[in-house]
Design a binder for these strands. Structure first.
Lengths: 228, 228
DNA sequence: GTGTCGTCGATTGTTGACAATCGATCACCA
DNA sequence: TGGTGATCGATTGTCAACAATCGACGACAC
């Protein structure tokens, strides 16, 4: 009697949180913009109660912030954040491979290959939004394979930020950065036998990513913003 | 016109979240036990609205979990969690020192010394509860000094877990593990010039910590619990 | 002009009542 | 005896109204 995933409990809160998160991370709601509860509640067709709980959840996830009695805002993107995200990501992804290295099996190999194919497919199809998700899914396979639930938890929060940055980048420039062969070396080394080389690849991979993202941020004119 | 911290906005939610978190992490509320909203709301003298939002926040912090329409429970402690926490903590604390190493200044040195003295003072005084917080504060100084806000954020979530474990350990055995000189080598190396030695110290420090905590967990009889 | 104070609309914070769901219990029946 | 379904208390989920607070605007005094 296995193979059945539990039926999804549907509470308004959880669905609202998912929908809102998706709208923010995909860039449909602009970073820095304000959310007003009454308007959102009406849009979703629910009262403010569950909506507020969903908002509270997203605040804790780090993609919203609120000032009491004043307003709730989508977080904005800063260069410092990008630096931090990539630096810690390099560290964590290296850690993930160290944990994983001697336990990589057929399952891991197949899953990584599968997701890499999915990634190149979205790039070939020119579907930029899908390619963002596919790239995150590709890297996510590594974290999932470790079986390390805390590591996975941390990755998921970083993942949100990355999605936000890349979506903003894409919205601004219309094109995505990664080339079709951007993960070939990564994939080959991840399935190979040279951990030190894999470490090096992660390092350069992250440096490239950080540079690209920061170049985009430096280039854009500072938005009016509500901050001093 | 500096030196004034912003006046604390007092919303019920934030105060409830703080109080509840403290009660859970310090062990006043037993791991695994159920929280019922109506009872808590009455205790705090507020309605269920703000209380639910506080709970939502603590769920997102990972110290509560909820099953829709059924109940809200304090997370329980497992051996796997301990292993994961210490393994990732070793990694992060090493990362913190790498980030920090060449930028350590007088401020860092003084702060670390200060907190180390505070730690030994609580141990000398036999104040076990305070020594738990002091030890967390001592290690926290390293993360704070990096100026890396994401790293700090992650540390704070790990910190909560550690506090929970140590408090449970203390409640069960009445005594705390760490000896008075448990951090002498750590402190000396953290202020020294040998990063490789510091790495080694972190490694053995974490191994000791994990062993102690796991020994406690293995030793306790499995509690009835609501899980299969 | 310049600074101060009060007013007002907008927004979030809080409340108490009501609805939906879950899990245990128990009667019932094959 | 085993299992099936109904009932019920407990708990969380949701709602709509009300309260508190903030920030902007403008009148007013100097």
């Amino acid at each position: 009697m296995d193979g059945f995933s539990r039926v999804a409990k549907h509470t308004f809160r959880s669905r609202i949180a998912d929908t809102l998160r998706d709208a923010i991370l995909s860039g449909n709601i602009e970073p820095g913009s304000q959310l007003v509860e009454t308007a959102l509640a009406e849009q979703f067709g629910v009262s403010r109660g569950p909506l507020r709980e969903a908002i509270r959840q997203l605040i804790e996830e780090g993609i919203l912030e609120t000032v009491p009695y004043t307003g709730t805002y989508v977080i904005d993107i800063t260069v410092k954040d990008v630096d931090e995200i990539y630096s810690i990501r390099r560290n964590l992804e290296t850690f993930a491979f160290e944990q994983l290295w001697d336990r990589r099996g057929e399952g891991f190999r197949n899953e990584l290959l599968r997701r890499h194919e999915a990634l190149t497919a979205t790039i070939d199809a020119g579907d930029d939004k899908a390619s963002i998700l596919a790239e995150l899914s590709f890297h996510g396979a590594v974290y999932e394979a470790t079986g390390h639930s805390f590591l996975l938890r941390i990755w998921q929060s970083l993942r949100g930020r990355l999605q936000l940055y890349w979506a903003a980048h894409h919205r601004a420039h219309g094109i995505r950065g990664p080339r079709r062969d951007g993960h070939d070396a990564y994939l080959r080394l991840a399935l190979g036998d040279d951990l030190a080389a894999m470490r090096g690849e992660i390092e350069s991979h992250m440096r490239r990513g950080a540079e690209q993202t920061k170049a985009f941020l430096d280039g854009r004119e500072p938005r009016p913003g509500r901050r001093a």
